[in-house]
Amino acid sequence: MMSRGRFRKTALVVGLSFLYLPILSMIVFSFNNSRLVTVWDAAHSPTLKWYSALLSNGHILDAAWLSIRIAAVTATLSVVLGTVAGLVLARFGPFRGRALLAGLTTAPLVMPEVITGLSMLLLFVALEHAIGWPDGRGFVTITIAHVTFCLSYVTVVVQSRLAGFDDSLEEAALDLGARPARVFFSITLPLILPAIISGWLLAFTLSWDDVVISQFVAGPSASTLPMVIFSKVRLGVSPDVNALASIMVAVVALCVVCSTLWMRRLERRRQLEEQMARAAGG
């Protein structure tokens, strides 16, 4: 019989390999010279030719630029709306319609994308039919659709962060003479800033990554990067997508590792300071 420690370690190693080996294989094959993705051309590899092919592919670059713009606007709008929603749910106490708002903000978290995509498109078609707006579909419609599902994630993140803080902090500020708007900007906002930042990143990633909803609400003229990738890979493997994937993994890994190290340093400093305070007593 396996000891418990060994069992846990095995579970982790197997599980993490399952998560990482596919990504690793993509990275490896992005340096493969052969067009046949699966055959390693040892003679001429590693090569950077797929990376240069990628960077000279105007179609992909345009799509990437559109995706970045949509993701940035989506993330910013989601953060504003999601923060307000999170604040309302966590701090405004009971009000009529609170349960509905709570429901509406959590539903998109699990809603199948095809349903969200279809319903958004039908709304835009009906709106265009009725009032002539939105005139055609593209950047604006994709962004609206993305904000709608991203704001739920931001709401949950902000709401949980607020729930971890005592209401009395805001009450204390009121008690010391700060008006509600001032309380929000000098107390609440600084406290939830980490949640707002991670909410922004989350919304950016979700928007950047979305293919199904975009496919519904994008017009024929607008293609986001995932839409381009999707139509490419539906036809089978293509090595330049491997290169693209590798770049994205590298960027993300760099960001996540840096931010984690940074957060950990902050945390460690905080712990140290707390220990010192305890040692000092008083």
């Binding site: 998560l19 993509m26 990554d209 995932p226 990738i229 890979v233 493997v237 491997n242 994937a245 996540v256």
Partner: peptide, 19 residues
């Protein structure tokens, strides 16, 4: 390590399995 793949493209991670 668990969360990291989530931040990379979902589509590309599915695509990795095609290969």
């Amino acid at each position: 390590l668990i969360v990291l793949p989530f931040w990379t493209s979902f589509l590309l991670r599915v695509y990795a399995w095609v290969g």
